[in-house]
Design a protein around this nucleic acid. Structure first.
Length: 938
DNA sequence: CCTGTCACG
DNA sequence: GACGTACGTGACAGGG
């Protein structure tokens, strides 16, 4: 029945990109259950196609149909004008992989799918519409894009699928005030801020339509521009003639696109049921598969239910998980292989399982696995003891023997490994990084995971902490068995392997039970809280990245530390003697209480202030002031510095060197800091000294292995850059774009000092103000920091606000937002709750400054998180390991020959880490350093 | 266990 | 007009 395209034929042209974006934004970010592939836009796209075909199956059904896509970002318009579509936001990361799938979907529906490199979809649509019109057929363009309106008329109409409205010549007139043949002229004059078409400044659609009504065509208008009465308008049209003519070329669609197919190739035929249903099955679209199978009158293919619900708990019908009682006695203790297999099968069937590990220590690097607990349903959990020992073993070596009635560790792990690594089963944990690290040491790479701690953090940062006990109390009204009751505390504390198995079961299974229940509460709330992308993009993917960094650790040279400790001891002893001599009596220099009494009571210094405990304040700022009057306070300051360096660093770090690896392994808490920053503990490697020469030498003990180098990359002024972007401070943005010294530039702007006459002191003051702004500046705080009178500090601040009024606006708007919503947000959508903002009294001040700071600090934290998540792939082929993060710095260990390559690759990731979600107005700049130790690298 | 102090960004 | 004040962390020592 193929007769070729001609009179009576009806061509439908669907704007594919419009369909995709509408589908993407209309739906929550769904993902394919079996492997987490993002699929929301594809799902919406298929639904829209299906509905479209259904609605157009009557006698007006199209004889020919095609979906047209854009291809490539560079078109002939970019050659005309390099700014064309330059400020278009980049495609969201989770949409990109879905684009090819929409092509496949189109083909599966047996609809022609067309695109052409170097041309926009609009040009292909224009060319096809012209051809169809000439052949005597009619055309419906399915799109609401105003750029396509120039094509309407002579048998061509547009159809807005969203509003279910046909746009004909009158519809175009309604929109533009002119008929289709003049649309291009209107657009050339009015320009388009979305596509970055310049147009004529100051002329919009209304004025353009009016001018064209008067002069007829754009060319006529430009030739006779002198006749225009309004002086401003006349001047614009004369001066900007080139720009307007360029704009016309940009908006004019190309009807001569070189196509490698003809209209006849677009003939619409019914899809092949097998192909279409096969595709839908592969995408795991259950509802749509069934609907289309019904329409074909065939059996719907079975999408195996053994593939997991995985990512989400089943819809909640029964009693709330918080209402199901906790019954420790009901927990299953799994002591044989058959029972274990039953539990594993249940997990496979459901597609999710809560997992918790019990170990001999909180240190994941040395902890030995003692047992694993699982839960698949609220109130239903199992504990699998694997390494329990009978208490008080009485053999000669005092070692306890493995208790009876446990599956052999190897055997159990061999059974658990396929489950824990099965991409089709979601493993749910509370602080999964811990379990992942322990299991990694037993050869199990647990994935995919959900983490209740991180779910809570993504939704509730700032509201409460995210430890399991706190979450259980708050959301389940249940106090878990305290670990103290199981293993004791203090001197009589035992390790978990010595806990009797019955008791261990109650404790361990309860943890898995609680974790599962929390997940069932939290996971469905994620989308509503609008933090799905935060959780899936910036929290969860960080878990394996940090686990690897922590397991890698950094090499620390014990001898270097030990020598420093000795040197510090000697110096301190000398200082202590001098201090006692000056004080006229011996006392504990390390006791602020005793020191305060010596200073203010015995020696009679003025201005002693007592705190709420009744002790004198003896902080560094106090001693610094007293140091002008007497030598003793300076000695105490020196002593304190050495004492700090010794106790916290040179002594303590040695204790943290792992006997097996010879390295120090910190632990990062992902959900510790409210702003999104990480925190480092045991030991804290984010506060290794650097500001004083003496302290910085401690970094010489952090070294690279033989043949390797430490490389440090850090963001330059990232928070100030973010401030410039968020608050929209043009002067700061400009300074950053030009690579200026930002503090000097600020000083120059504030104090009217030319850059080449800048003194270090003026620059220092400007620097203090810049940082003060980030922290929610106050006259008092700046005065104290700069040690200047408060009035003077306030004067600086006033002048700063005067010169950079955007800052004041940002602070006011942020405070308002916080008051209104009780939260603030980062550029990437991270939510930080600010419950205290409503408080009265001094707490309100704290809350306000925290609210001002959080979006800035938090956005910086988001950016480096994104960089860290991308880093493993980016450096996969290099002999390099990412070791540490210090808020704006990443430290790597690299083989000597690959340093330059590593720097290039890592810098690229870091400098572009905001893309494509946020387009910053300022460049991100990363500085790099390298050396045999951290002091050299930094 | 809390407080003061001080190390970092 | 008074009241306290820079933001975010973690570790250690002293002292109850």
């Amino acid at each position: 029945m193929s007769t070729g395209f001609g009179k009576g034929s009806h061509l439908h042209l669907i704007d594919g990109s419009a369909f995709i974006f509408r589908a993407y934004h209309a739906l929550p970010p769904l993902s394919r259950k079996s492997d987490g592939l993002p699929i929301g836009a594809v799902s919406g796209f298929c639904n829209m196609l299906q509905r479209y075909v259904e609605n157009n199956s009557g006698k007006d059904a199209p004889t020919h149909i095609a979906v047209i896509f854009d291809k490539g970002s560079h078109t002939f318009r970019n050659d005309l004008y390099d700014q064309y579509k330059a400020n278009r936001e980049a495609m969201p990361e989770d949409l990109r992989p879905q684009i090819p799938l929409t092509r496949r979907a189109t083909e599966a529906f047996n609809i022609a799918c067309k695109e052409l490199e170097g041309y926009e979809a609009d040009d292909i649509i224009a060319t096809l519409a012209c051809q169809a019109r000439e052949a005597g057929g009619s055309v419906t363009i399915v799109s609401s894009d105003k750029d396509l309106m120039q094509l309407v008329g002579d048998g061509v109409v547009m159809y807005d699928a969203m509003k279910n409205r046909v746009i004909d010549r009158d519809g175009v007139f309604e929109k533009f005030g002119v008929y289709p043949e003049s649309v291009v002229d209107v657009q050339a004059l009015a320009g388009d801020s979305v596509d970055n078409v310049p147009g004529a400044p100051g002329i919009g659609v209304k004025t353009a339509a009016q001018l064209l009504g008067e002069f007829g065509t754009l060319e006529e208008l430009l030739d006779r521009a002198e006749e225009i009465k309004q002086p401003k308008r006349r001047q614009t049209l004369i001066e900007k003639r080139d720009q307007i003519e360029l704009s016309k070329k940009l908006v004019q669609l190309d009807c001569e696109t070189p196509l490698d197919f003809t209209l006849d190739d677009l003939e619409h035929t019914d899809p092949d049921p097998g192909t279409l249903l096969g595709f839908l099955k592969e995408m795991e679209f259950r509802t749509l598969t069934k609907r289309i199978a019904d329409a074909f009158g065939v059996e719907a293919p079975v999408i195996p239910d053994t593939t997991p619900q995985g990512a989400n708990p089943p819809a909640d019908n029964g009693p709330s998980v918080a209402d199901i009682p906790f019954e420790p006695a009901s927990y299953d203790c799994v002591r044989d292989v058959e029972a274990l297999k039953t539990w594993i099968a249940q997990a496979h069937e459901l597609g999710y399982v809560a997992v918790d590990t019990e170990t001999t220590s909180l240190n994941e690097m040395t902890a030995e696995l003692v047992g694993v607990s699982l839960s698949v349903e609220a109130g239903k959990a199992a504990y699998i003891p694997l390494g329990h020992r009978s208490q008080g073993g009485d053999d000669l070596f005092g070692g306890a023997e493995l208790a009876e009635g446990q599956i052999k560790l190897d055997e159990a792990l061999a059974l658990l490994k396929p489950l824990l690594e099965d991409p089709a089963v979601m493993k749910i944990g509370q602080n999964m990084k811990y379990d992942a690290k322990v299991l990694a040491r037993y050869g199990i790479d647990i994935a995919p995971i959900d983490d209740t701690m991180l779910l809570s953090y993504a939704m509730n940062a700032g509201l409460h902490s995210h430890g399991m006990d706190a979450l259980s109390e708050r959301y389940l009204s249940h106090s878990p068995i305290p670990i103290k009751e199981v293993i004791g505390s203090g001197k009589s504390q035992i390790t978990f392997d010595l806990v009797p198995i019955d008791e261990a079961t109650k404790y361990a299974a309860e943890d898995a039970d609680i974790t599962l229940r929390l997940w069932q509460i939290f996971k469905p709330q994620l989308h509503q809280a609008k933090v799905t992308r935060v959780y899936e993009g910036m929290e969860r993917p960080l878990v394996p990245v940090l686990a690897d960094m922590e397991r890698a650790g950094i090499k620390v040279d014990r001898d270097t530390l030990s020598r420093m400790s000795n040197a510090f001891s000697q110096k301190m002893a000398g200082l202590e003697a001098e201090i006692h001599e000056m004080a006229g009596q011996p006392f504990n220099v390390g006791s602020p209480k005793q020191l305060g009494e010596i200073l203010f009571d015995k020696m009679g210094f003025e201005g002693g202030k007592k705190g709420k405990t009744g002790a004198y304040a003896t902080g560094a700022d106090v001693l610094e002031d007293l140091a002008t009057e007497h030598e003793l306070p300076r000695r105490v300051l020196d002593w304190r510095q050495l004492s700090k360096l010794k106790s916290t660093y040179t002594d303590a770090l040695q204790e943290h060197i792992n006997a097996e690896t010879g390295r120090v392994h910190t632990s990062y808490s992902i959900a510790g800091a409210n702003t999104g920053r990480l925190a480092s503990t045991d030991p804290n490697l984010q506060n290794i000294p650097v500001r004083t020469e003496e302290g910085r030498r401690i970094r010489e003990a952090f070294i690279a292995e033989q043949g390797k180098v430490l490389v440090s990359l850090d963001y330059s002024q990232i928070e100030l850059r973010i401030l410039a972007h968020i608050a929209g401070i043009d002067a700061l943005k400009q300074a950053f774009r030009e690579g200026q010294d930002i503090h000097a530039a600020t000083a120059s702007e504030m104090f009217n000092v030319p850059l080449d006459e800048m003194t270090p002191d003026v620059r220092r003051q400007a620097k203090a103000i810049n940082f003060g702004v980030i922290y929610g500046i106050s006259g008092f705080g700046l005065a104290r920091n700069l040690r200047i009178p408060r009035a003077e500090a306030q004067g600086f601040i006033d002048r700063y606000f005067e010169r950079f009024p955007g800052i004041r606006t940002y602070m006011d708007e942020t405070t308002e937002f916080a008051k209104k919503h009780s939260r603030v947000e980062t550029l990437f959508g991270r939510v930080i709750h600010t419950p205290e903002i409503a408080a009265k009294g001094p707490r309100a001040g704290f809350a306000k400054r925290a609210a001002i700071n959080a979006p800035i600090q938090g956005t910086a934290a988001d950016i480096i998180r994104r960089a860290m998540i991308r880093m493993p792939d980016a450096i996969a082929k290099l002999p390099a390991t990412m070791l540490l993060q210090v808020h704006d710095e990443l430290l790597f260990e690299v083989e000597e020959g690959a340093v330059d390559e590593l720097i290039a690759a890592a810098r690229d990731v870091m400098e572009n880490a905001a893309d494509p979600v946020v387009k910053l107005d300022v460049p991100l700049v990363v500085d790099a350093g390298q050396g045999a130790n951290w002091a050299e690298a930094h």
